[in-house]
């Protein structure tokens, strides 16, 4: 304990909370459990990936080899933000791994999917599951395909698709 997160470099997440040396840093176990508990993504999905932190609470997922710590521009992709009380997966992570999810996936009709991809908020009354961050998905060529991350509160689904990824389709 006592060490601070260094925002200039990548540090591999400790396997479990007991092994952490930086205060407040989440563990691999906590990240994998979160994806399992919240979205039903099987932990084995990530057997060939490591998790890293660069910038407080910004978690990256990586498939390659690297020593820790590492000072480079990027490894793999950002997958999760853990700084707030409610953790928030990224849209790119959800598009890459969200097809393994069984829970907290809200299936959208084509027009709803269009609004979601454009970054719009919309009223959706039919959702009876948990509030909070959901995976927005729709049918593509006969299969459910994740669109990105949304925030569901009070009957409204707010698209969290980042500006640079929003499209008018």
């Amino acid at each position: 304990m006592g060490e601070q997160n260094d925002g200039q470099r990548f540090d591999r997440l400790p396997a479990t909370p007991d092994e952490r040396s930086v205060e407040g840093r989440v563990s691999r176990e906590a990240v994998v459990d979160y994806f399992d508990d919240r979205f039903g993504i099987p932990p084995a999905t990530f057997d060939d990936h490591t998790f890293w932190e660069k910038g407080a609470g910004k978690i990256w997922i990586y498939a390659g080899e690297a020593p820790t710590p590492l000072e480079i521009e990027a490894i793999g992709m950002t997958c999760l933000r853990t700084r707030q009380e409610h953790w928030k997966p990224t849209t790119d992570f959800v598009q890459r791994f969200g097809r393994h999810a069984t829970d907290c996936v809200i299936e959208l009709e084509r027009e709803e999917a269009r609004a979601f991809a454009a970054g719009e908020d919309q009223e959706i009354e039919r959702w009876e599951g948990d509030w909070g961050y959901l995976i927005g998905a729709h049918d593509v060529a006969g299969d459910v395909e994740p669109l990105g991350i949304g925030l569901y509160v009070h009957g409204e689904l707010r698209s969290m698709v980042p500006k640079g990824r929003q499209r008018e389709l």
């Binding site: 498939a63 390659g64 480079i72 490894i75 793999g76 992709m77 790119d92 598009q95 890459r96």
Partner: peptide, 10 residues
Amino acid sequence: ERLGATSLAV
């Protein structure tokens, strides 16, 4: 990130 490549180190 858009293409989902997790094996890249930049």
